[in-house]
Each structure stands twice: as structure tokens, then as C-alpha cells.
Design a protein around this nucleic acid. Structure first.
Lengths: 208, 208
DNA sequence: ACCTGAACACCGTTCAAGT
DNA sequence: ACCTGAACACCGTTCAAGT
């Protein structure tokens, strides 16, 4: 309860928390620095003591998003691997985690892959967080190829897998595709069936 | 040369043209109504005589983008089909056209699939233009499945094909994937190899 | 019908000043 | 070191007024 300094002592973290809340509630276009500051109970410019500019704040949000995404992918893959007793990394589980994160955190997902956050090269923590996420899927694809004795390029296969899953996520979020138009019960089923159409994927069962 | 009315008589079209120019030069964040008006040599609010609001202008730009995209896909598919003497619609050609449009018109492509343009349901011409584009790919996929006697769902296969190609396009534009990291000579080669990893695609040759 | 100019409620960012 | 308040150069949009 001891308030340090001018306010609560850790303005930086509460600014990030406020930003997350506003982003989730009002989307990317509704996320302004002035709203973040007001929500944190601080002047409009206090923020510049903790972040270089708006893009730096957004980069922090995006990096946290990638950490969350990586965690969800790993957890979904783990659940499925245990249930199915799979020997190889569970590509379908990673895909499900990816799409679940995207549809459950639309604005944050949009921010992570949008142009508002500036060049990731300027933010090492952002680049590392997204690299860990990508590595998860690349490793699973490489293991699957090796296990099946495929001659396909692991790099190209990983790129194809990520592109498919990413495309599904963004097109679902934009309302351009949906389970309904494919006569499927859920977007999860759509993702599983779409992933089965990759030559290197093993047959993916329905969840349940 | 005869100037009609207050200015050139067709302010609407020249506003759209100005907007296209600014979009290409300065990207989505640089596209403001005030710049468009200034570029067309007109007051900042003249625009509201021709468009309900900014989103309506953007919807017109996006619709024109979809027309262009559809044309490029059809032309690339035609070129390849003629050269290869293909009997079935050329899925790889459609994919190449898609990615070529995306990388050659980054800002417009971003606008077409971004959230700035508002709900497509409010703009029938936009919805129709994007439906024609999607139909092109869906028809090619359906023909391919029928030809190969596949039992796969045409709707799911079309969704997977579009998602893969769309994911490749956006991830390439964001600098997250590239031919270089896959040890390939060009992004076109990457797209062809990735498309070959769809179970229902026939083997796609290298261009040349 | 088409266009202008002033005005309003917002933005991100700077800068000198306060504690 | 951290925060404030005034200020600047932008936004999209409205509205009364002009032609």
C-alpha cells in the first residue's frame, strides 16, 4: 500500500496494464496515449518518462502477446500429445493454440502483426519473443519431416505451416472465412481439417 | 479542357486518384483526408459532398484493389496454363498472382484486408469485388479435386488454399518470412514450393 | 448540388517548468 | 528522476454559409 514517489511507484507497469485493457475493449484504433494516461490517472505526457514514443509502448504489448501465444501453443500441443500418446510434436495442437489465441485476443493479435508497432528490429525483446513462437512450430515441422523420412525442405515446410495457420487466423478474424461456410461445427474443426491438407501432416483427429 | 462546375467536374474520381497516390507513397497511416483534399486542390471538407466519410472512400479504394487483384490472378493463371498446356485451372498461377499483387501494392493490400475500411457489408461493391476474387480460387480448387477424384471438401480445400496464399503474402510483406531464410532464389519460388505442399495441388514447376 | 471556412473534439509529441 | 501544463502541428467531422 505504501505509495512511493509521485504515484504508485511503478507507473510503467500500470501504463502497460491500462493499455492492454483499452486495447481489448476498444481495439487498435481506440488505443490512444491520452486514454492510457487518463486511465492510469496521470498526465497525458507522463508516459514519455517511461517510453520513447507510442511505438515503444505498443512493442511491449506485442512482445507480451507473443509470450502468451507461445505459452498457449505449447500448452495445447502438450494436451493433445498426452491424450493421443503422440511420439512427434503435435502440429495440430500448435495450430489450434495459434488460432485460439488469435480469435480470443483479436486486437492484440492485430497489433502483434500490424504496422503500428514499428520495425521489430528496434525492439530486441519483441524480435526474440516472436522468434521463440516461430521456433516452436519450426521444430515441430522439422521433427515430423525427419520422422516420416520426407525430402522436403524443413524451412519451406515450416513457412508453409505458419502461413496456413496465420492465414486461417487473420481471415477468420476478418470474417472472411468461417466454419459455417464449410459446413463444419467449429472453427477448431476447420483448422484441423485445413492442417490435414498439408502433405507432411499426420492425420489429425477431431478433439473430444 | 473545359472545366465544368466549380472545378474539374469530376472531383470524386480525382479524389480517388489522389488517395491512391498518397496511399502508395505514404502508406495507410499517411493517408489522411486533408492530404487527399489538398492534393486535389480543394478544401478539406469538399470530400463530404461525394463520400459519407473516410471509410467510404477507403472502401472504394479497396474495391478497386480487389478488381486489380482478380485481374492479375486470372492473367498469371492464364499465362501458366497456356505455357504448360494445363487441363485444369492453374492454382499455382493464381497463387503467384496473389502474392505478386500483395508485394507490389503493399499499402493497398493492407487496406483491403485491414480494419480501417469498415464493415464490408455496408459496401456491396466491395463485397462483390472480394467475392469474385475468392471465387476464382475456389473454382480452381474445386476443379482440381474433381479431376483427381478427391473426397476432400471443396469448401475446406478452398479455405486452406486461400489461407496459405494469404498467410504467405502478409508474412512476406511484414518481413517475417522470405526466400532467403529458405535458401531459395525468389519469393515466387517459395510460393510455388509452399503450394506444392497442399495435398490436392499438382506438382508445380519452377517458372522459366 | 457542390464547395468553403470556421469550429469542435480529438490526436502524438516537444519543451520548459515544477517536485 | 519523474511528472505537469501549455503549446504545436496535426486529425475526422459538423455546420452554417456561399455559389
Amino acid at each position: 500500500m505504501a505509495k512511493k514517489q509521485y504515484h504508485h511507484g511503478n507507473l510503467r507497469d500500470s501504463l502497460v496494464a491500462s493499455a492492454h485493457g483499452i486495447l481489448a475493449a476498444e481495439g487498435v484504433p481506440g488505443l490512444s496515449l491520452r486514454k492510457v494516461a487518463a486511465h492510469a490517472g496521470v498526465s497525458a505526457t507522463a508516459l514519455y518518462s517511461h517510453f520513447k514514443d507510442k511505438r515503444e509502448l505498443l512493442a511491449v504489448l506485442a512482445a507480451q502477446g507473443f509470450e502468451q501465444l507461445t505459452g498457449l501453443m505449447a500448452s495445447e500441443a502438450g494436451k493433445r500429445a498426452i491424450r493421443d500418446g503422440a511420439a512427434a510434436p503435435d502440429l495440430a495442437g500448435l495450430a489450434l493454440g495459434y488460432v485460439r489465441f488469435a480469435t480470443g485476443n483479436k486486437a492484440l493479435f492485430q497489433l502483434m502483426f500490424g504496422r503500428e508497432t514499428g520495425n521489430p528490429k528496434d525492439y530486441p525483446y519483441l524480435q526474440e519473443a516472436s522468434a521463440r513462437c516461430y521456433g516452436l512450430m519450426a521444430d515441430a515441422v522439422a521433427a515430423r519431416l525427419e520422422q516420416s523420412g520426407s525430402a522436403d525442405s524443413p524451412a519451406v515446410a515450416a513457412t508453409a505451416a505458419w502461413s496456413l495457420v496465420h492465414g486461417l487466423s487473420t481471415l477468420i478474424n476478418d470474417g472472411r472465412i468461417s466454419a459455417g461456410t464449410c459446413e463444419l461445427a467449429s472453427n477448431e474443426a476447420l483448422v484441423l481439417q485445413a492442417c490435414r491438407m498439408l502433405t507432411f501432416a499426420e492425420a489429425a483427429q477431431e478433439p473430444g
